[in-house]
Amino acid sequence: MALATPFLISMGGWVALVAVRVCMGLTQSCFIPATHTLLGQWAPVAERTRLSNFSYAGIQFGTIITMPLCGVLSTTSLGWTLIFYSMGALSLAASAFFWFLTASTPRQHPFIGEAELRYIETSLQTKAEEEQVPIPWRHIVRSRAMWAIAAAHIGGNWCFIIFLVQIPTYLKNALGINITDSAMLSSLPFVSQWLFSWAFSFLSDFLISRHLLSLTNCRKLFNTIAAVGTALGLAAMSFLSGEHRIAAVTTLVLTVGLSSGICSGYMLNHIDLSPRFGGVMYGMSNCLANLLGLLAPLSAGFILEDQPTELGRWRVVFFTAAALVLACDLLYVLFTTSQQQPWNDPQTEDYDLGFKEKGQEKNMTPAETIYKFPENSEKET
């Protein structure tokens, strides 16, 4: 789609551009759920946060190098079209590497060593050959922890949209700072996010491996750091004026950096609950967060109306986002858990024994046989 963008624009103008960007968004929607699914099969619990951050840090790193690179490409004889041709070719190359160097499970990978395979399967308690089982939709939807994760996802995504869409407008119209004209200034928040995410991931795995905090409490801690840091940053920015340009940019950079705590918080909680279905669960919460996230720019436009330079209106926008992210984090802290759920592996010995004890093997449908579990069957990972 990137390769075809210049041609489509020449044929259909801005309408064609909007259409191709929508289609590109639809195709990219499978990226994180697919990565979550792979991480659930590959990342040992003690290294899950670091390995996941290593994967997802590519999002920030790609943004950091692309912003100045696009500026250079646009000055060539091909102009802006070279940006789309280059990114399309890069995407195809990455797809080729991904296709030939990855496998769904460690046991299916052609190059893995026996020691590494045994380590991963022992850590994740996976079987040599696992059968495919239907997705336990009913148990996922009824999971209190799943809804807590969705709440944190909604709050984090709302603030991300505010930073992505509204903050540059605020800096330009209210404070007279145009960061979009400078590739370096535009990339600084992403550099901060990249660095903070690495620090948080290593600290999280350190706390877990040394048994200083449980996995559940680590997820809550770093998600709260992200939520509180974001709320304080938004509140601080709303009281800055055009005379405090350096303070405004510094606050923006630090706030975006602290927001990366979600990478060690709710973002990995799906895999904690169910390594097998973590990708499906992320897709569900991400869909809900993005649908409600559409209201973020709409509500900001309603509050600002035609007065984007009035600081009082911007305070309402920022404080609304801050209150939302704190409320969502509170729900997350109260109701989430990192215990692996029994419906992640419905064909276990506990499952079979439970039905024999309760005498429920007879007169049960196949779906009920797969997904009904004895009480108190949850185990700590």
Rank of each mutant, 00 (worst) to 15 (best):
A89P: 06
Q41A: 08
T309G: 05
T337L: 04
P44D: 08
A148Y: 15
V15Y: 03
Q340P: 00
A183C: 10
Y56C: 09
I161S: 07
T369W: 14
E305F: 12
G283T: 09
E378S: 14
R315F: 02
L252K: 06
S214N: 10
L213P: 02
Q41K: 01
V280R: 08
A57Y: 10
I135C: 07
Q340C: 05
Q41I: 05
F196P: 00
F163W: 07
G71M: 10
G359P: 07
V141G: 13
L207W: 06
A16M: 06
L207Y: 03
F84G: 03
C263D: 08
C287G: 11
E378H: 12
T75S: 03
N344Q: 12
I32A: 09
I303T: 13
N269T: 13
A2E: 04
I32P: 04
R138I: 12
L258S: 02
E380W: 15
L295A: 15
V20W: 00
T169K: 00
P168F: 12
Y119D: 13
T381P: 05
L117Y: 10
G359I: 01
F111I: 04
A231G: 05
S10L: 03
N286E: 09
K358N: 15
L207K: 06
P110R: 07
A148F: 15
Y85V: 08
L353G: 00
S74M: 13
Y266F: 13
G58M: 15
S241Y: 04
G155P: 01
L38M: 04
S182L: 05
A231V: 09
G176A: 05
V20C: 02
I179E: 11
A57W: 13
N53P: 02
V45E: 02
R50M: 11
N157M: 07
T169M: 04
L203K: 03
A148V: 13
T5D: 00
E375A: 13
H153C: 02
A322K: 03
E243R: 15
T49E: 02
Y351W: 11
L8S: 10
A296F: 00
S192H: 01
A93P: 02
W198A: 09
A46P: 00
W147C: 08
I370N: 02
I149F: 14
Y371V: 03
L188W: 04
M11N: 02
I9A: 11
S299H: 03
F200Y: 10
T180F: 15
V18F: 14
E114C: 05
A46L: 09
R142C: 10
L273I: 06
E310S: 07
A289P: 04
L195R: 00
